[in-house]
């Protein structure tokens, strides 16, 4: 802290003498925090170790050593869970602060090696037979249980991803954008169902006051999934009147998320609602303009985008003020 500045503030009378002394003390004993450095290293360590083990399995899957590897992985997983169980705090419906970051990442490592272990078992010995639903269902349930038991957001997100795998779709936003194969009805409906399910989970977490802080993670995945699948549904049925049903649903959802964002004062979800709704309205307007089959439709749609974007800017600025006032 800048002592000169606070001296001036003190002379101006903005701060009391006692506070000035405190500032002087605080600036003398500033600590240097290695928090983020250690956290990044932990993350890297877990990532490297788990991918190293993954490749190890992959390469040795048909050699005699595979039972040894299986044992090693089971031992790592078991060791991690043992450490976590020993150090964990008792379960509570509220937020539990984890003992330290090392605990968090060891738990993560345990889960990852557990997943590898189950995958390996299924692949080599087909423990679950040809019932593949079961092979993904069990890890998913385990992940959700661990996430709630140890209060770990990262594992909750992994659980959500696994839920999606179990339902037959992949859910992280990156993969959503990369392999966007929305050309099948089932995929769209599964996405939509999953998205709404997650939104419901977010709502229920708050309603029952059960791990309230998990709301954000549920809501984040839910909002993206539902909006994207509604838009995809609209384009899938573009030629039939059925498509407008998706738009109506989208606006209804947008209204709900908007109210919710206002209630929780969340700028992030507010921005998402505005952007997704803007995309929806723009597709409708452009469709209308091009339906006129006029030469002017291109110019008109350009003008629409300029004007509407300016409008949305003012809307965002106003909403920003409004949400702060709530």
């Amino acid at each position: 802290m800048n002592i000169e500045l606070f001296k001036k503030l003190f002379e101006e009378g903005s701060i009391s003498e006692e506070s000035f002394e405190k500032v002087k003390n605080a600036s003398r004993t500033t600590l240097f925090s290695l928090h983020w450095e250690v956290k990044t290293l932990l993350y890297l360590g877990v990532m490297l170790l788990s991918s190293g083990l993954g490749i190890l399995i992959y390469k040795n899957i048909d050699t005699i050593g595979h039972q040894v590897i299986l044992l090693i992985i089971a031992a790592i997983s078991g060791g991690c869970f043992f450490y976590c169980l020993k150090n964990k705090k008792p379960f509570s419906k509220e937020l539990i602060k984890s003992p330290n970051s090392f605990f968090d990442y060891i738990l993560l490592l345990g889960c990852l090696s557990f997943l590898s272990f189950v995958g390996y078992l299924q692949f080599q010995y087909t423990v679950f037979g040809t019932n593949y639903g079961m092979a993904t269902f069990i890890p998913m349930v385990a992940l959700f249980y661990i996430a709630y038991e140890f209060d770990h957001l990262g594992i909750l997100a992994m659980g959500i991803t696994n839920l999606a795998i179990w339902m037959g779709v992949s859910v992280t936003p990156k993969q959503l954008l990369l392999n966007a194969d929305f050309n099948s009805q089932t995929v769209i409906y599964t996405y939509l169902f999953l998205g709404l399910l997650l939104l419901l989970a977010a709502y229920l977490s708050v309603y029952f006051n059960f791990k309230k802080h998990f709301r954000f993670t549920y809501q984040h995945f839910g909002v993206h999934l539902s909006f994207i699948s509604l838009l995809a549904g609209y384009f899938f049925y573009y030629d039939s009147a059925f498509s407008f049903l998706f738009m109506v649903a989208l606006f209804a959802l947008a209204f709900y998320i908007y109210k919710d964002a206002m209630k929780h004062q969340s700028f992030y979800f507010l921005l998402l609602v505005v952007i997704y709704t803007y995309i929806a309205i723009s597709t409708l307007v452009v469709r209308g303009l091009f339906a006129m089959k006029d030469d002017a439709s291109i110019t008109l749609s350009f003008m629409y985008f300029i004007a509407s974007a300016i409008g949305i800017i003012f809307l965002l600025i106003n909403l920003n003020k409004k949400i702060k006032a709530v």
């Binding site: 593949y132 993904t136 890890p139 990262g154 997100a157 991803t161």
Partner: peptide
Amino acid sequence: VSETFSGTQPQGE
């Protein structure tokens, strides 16, 4: 975490 680790379950796809 979910972005980088979600691809590690070989049985999924």
